[in-house]
């Protein structure tokens, strides 16, 4: 039977009988996670990268970059948390995540990371939006003084926030994710850098956005290389990255990321408009990257052949 993980709903032709699977049924349970989880992966990475930029902007006196990235970080992590809770089967029990700290569960590790990170990012952002008349109050002064150390602490936690989600999906029986375990952390961290760079270009004027542009360039470069490697492994599950909805997302991600970064290198310094456009393209690129990887994982569980891997075959290249 040929692989047809393209998610299309057209009636399939009657395939010949499959001798080595059970009625062509998947061996694994496809993830019950909705695409909310992919949105969170993007938003969590964006928040992490933004906190890194914010701390740097704070230290180097780039106030508009700082404001935009601090607010962006807290917005992204807040929205991401909503997606996380929404995806639970029992959202009312989300706090059960906090009853244990379990090092064998990347989701537990991530929960505690977020529990540390989010309030720090929140404190830094609070200082940006504090109305002038409150700055004089004791509480206001406290927030103001706390903002810088909180921002630094958030930046220290940020790289882990960006990378842990890759471990979270790699530590599953999902073939396309599990077999990508050595590369996914690099794709995720680099994509976080590219997205945050994009955000920086959107929110700050070009004269303040030089670090954002450079971060986006580094991130985009590593993301493009690492995700390319992900698709070159010799394993049946690689097909899942090369076909169907996942392929479409990943192609789009690549185009947007490469295009965004090129535009920023050409015009990002001179034109605010070009910077904004390339920033938006980078953000969209990061979004599609996560969505594509997510969909590849789901598709790979539906195909029994990825699990029945006694006779690994070289994947067909497209």
């Amino acid at each position: 039977m040929s692989w047809s993980g393209d998610g299309s709903r057209e009636a399939a032709m009657v395939p010949p009988a499959e001798v080595d699977t059970y009625y062509g049924r998947p061996v694994l349970k496809p993830p019950v996670w909705k695409e909310d989880i992919a949105y969170y992966f993007f938003l969590g990475g964006l928040a992490a990268g933004a906190s890194l930029l914010a701390a740097g902007a704070d230290q180097t006196g780039r106030l508009r970059l700082r404001r935009g990235t601090r607010l962006g970080a807290v917005g992204a992590i807040g929205l991401g948390a909503i997606f996380l809770v929404r995806d639970l089967g029992r959202p009312d029990r989300f706090h059960h995540m906090l009853r244990v700290a379990k090092p064998t569960s990347p989701m537990s590790v991530g929960t505690w990371l977020l529990t540390a990170y989010a309030p720090l990012a929140g404190t830094a952002a609070l200082a940006e939006v504090l109305p002038r008349r409150w700055r004089r109050t004791t509480l206001g002064r406290l927030v103001d003084t706390a903002a810088r150390p909180a921002g630094v602490a958030a930046a220290l936690a940020a790289p882990a926030v960006a990378a842990y989600t890759a471990v979270l999906i790699a530590d599953t029986a999902v073939p396309a994710w599990n077999e990508g375990r050595d590369l996914l952390p690099f794709v995720f961290s680099a994509s976080a850098a590219a997205s945050a760079g994009g955000l920086g270009m959107l929110v700050a004027p070009p004269e303040e956005a030089a670090p954002a542009r450079r971060l986006a360039q580094y991130g985009a470069l590593v993301e493009l290389v690492a995700s390319r490697q992900l698709e070159r492994r010799r394993s049946p599950s690689v097909e899942a990255y090369l076909t169907g909805d996942a392929r479409r997302c990943l192609t789009r991600a690549r185009g947007l990321t490469a295009g965004g970064v090129l535009l920023s290198m050409l015009l990002g310094r001179r034109s605010r408009l070009a910077a904004a456009v390339s920033g938006a393209a980078l953000l969209a690129g990061g979004f599609y990257e996560r969505l594509g990887i997510f969909r590849a994982g789901v598709a790979s569980t539906k195909e029994p052949r990825t699990t029945v891997r006694r006779t690994p075959q070289a994947p067909a290249r497209t």
Partner: peptide, 23 residues
């Protein structure tokens, strides 16, 4: 997996640091 993530996270931190130093 955590080792790979650690390297990736450190690289991200280093990149974020360096873009401001150059700046």
């Amino acid at each position: 997996m955590w080792k790979a993530a650690g390297v990736a996270a450190l690289a991200l931190a280093a990149a974020a640091f360096s873009v401001f130093v150059e700046g």
